[in-house]
């Protein structure tokens, strides 16, 4: 850490020395930062501020807090609760199952085919899936899906996939989202938790063995306590990921049900609540949740990095 700081400070001075001979250089260098800065302001800062601020204005453009009455609406509240429990459930399941897969990958070489395959497959599912994951599950557990048809063919006609909670096909209801969501949550866990898992030093296992410990004591006394902050950090990341994901749900469900879908309803037609800019109010609610999550995440991340030297 210290070496990089030293390395970057010393040459900065000598390049400044070079600039003295050619003063024209300073202007283009500065402009380089300006163009990127302008882009970020125009397409990140302004949209983010507009999204959150729009919740504070009424239809006539006057400042108001009245829009927050939207959160008193039972439908909106239900959506928020559904968003939270779907995120919590898929985060916990995804984190546990993902951690088990990371454990299985422990001791495999990161430059071998197995790891490259797992890494790429995880990235595809975690970052690229979206709409296509929805299609995959329409083909698997949808009304005409392979598993559904197989269950029907062996005689289980009204099965969990065709009629869940006597409310129609499982896949097109909010609880049905859990299954496709796990297919991007588990891969994300593998991606984020594997580096921490690989940080376990073999010397700790040897020390444990020398002191007469078993593999069980190794995991309960050394492995798990050391990995705990990283595990909970990844868990938070998974929660945030499922809380903010939209594409999979949008491709499966055409009404509301979770907050991103409620925002869609608000943006396409102003129907649910009788106040203006509900989309902005909901966006603010999401941002507040994300800020809480990210603060907790960075705290845990600092705690986790203590052992990574």
């Amino acid at each position: 850490m210290t070496t990089t700081v030293v390395a970057s400070v010393a040459p900065a001075e000598s390049t400044r020395g070079a600039e003295v001979t050619t003063p024209r250089r300073r202007v283009p260098a500065w402009l380089g930062l300006i163009s990127f800065g302008a882009y970020v302001v125009l397409f990140l800062a302004i949209p983010a501020v507009l999204a959150v601020a729009s919740g504070f204005f009424d239809g006539a453009g006057d400042f108001t807090f009245a829009n927050f009455a939207a959160y008193a609406n039972p439908t909106i509240l239900q959506n928020f609760v559904a968003s939270l429990w779907i995120s919590a459930l898929t985060a916990i399941l995804g984190a546990v199952l993902g951690a088990i897969i990371c454990f299985a990958l422990l001791g495999t070489r990161s430059d071998r085919m197995l790891r490259s395959t797992v890494d790429s497959a995880s990235s595809v599912l975690a970052q690229f899936g979206g709409v296509m994951l929805a299609f995959a599950f329409i083909a698997t557990i949808g009304v005409q899906g392979v598993l559904t048809k197989w269950l029907v063919s062996i005689g289980i006609t009204p099965n969990v996939f065709t009629n869940f909670n006597s409310n129609g096909p499982l896949l097109y209801q909010i609880p049905g989202l859990v299954i496709p969501y796990l297919y991007f949550q588990i891969p994300l866990m593998v991606l984020t938790f594997m580096p921490a898992m690989e940080g376990l030093k073999s010397t700790w296992a040897e020390a444990n063995a020398t002191l007469g410990g078993t593999r069980f004591t190794y995991w309960t006394r050394i492995g798990m306590p050391i990995l705990a902050p990283a595990f909970f950090g990844s868990l938070i990341l998974l929660f945030a990921n499922s809380f903010s994901s939209y594409a999979t749900a949008a491709a499966l469900i055409s009404q509301g049900g979770i907050i991103p879908l409620a925002i869609r309803q608000q943006l396409t037609s102003e129907t649910i609540v009788g106040v203006a800019n509900v989309a902005g109010v909901l966006a603010l609610g999401m941002v507040v949740v994300m800020i809480i999550l990210m603060t907790a995440y960075s705290a845990l991340q600092r705690r986790a990095s203590r052992w990574r030297r």
Binding site: A51, S244, M286
Partner: peptide
């Protein structure tokens, strides 16, 4: 990463 796309969309529409 920390701002959901769906939130940015609300701001992208006027932009």
């Amino acid at each position: 990463i920390t701002i959901p796309s769906i939130v940015l969309v609300v701001g992208f529409i006027p932009v």
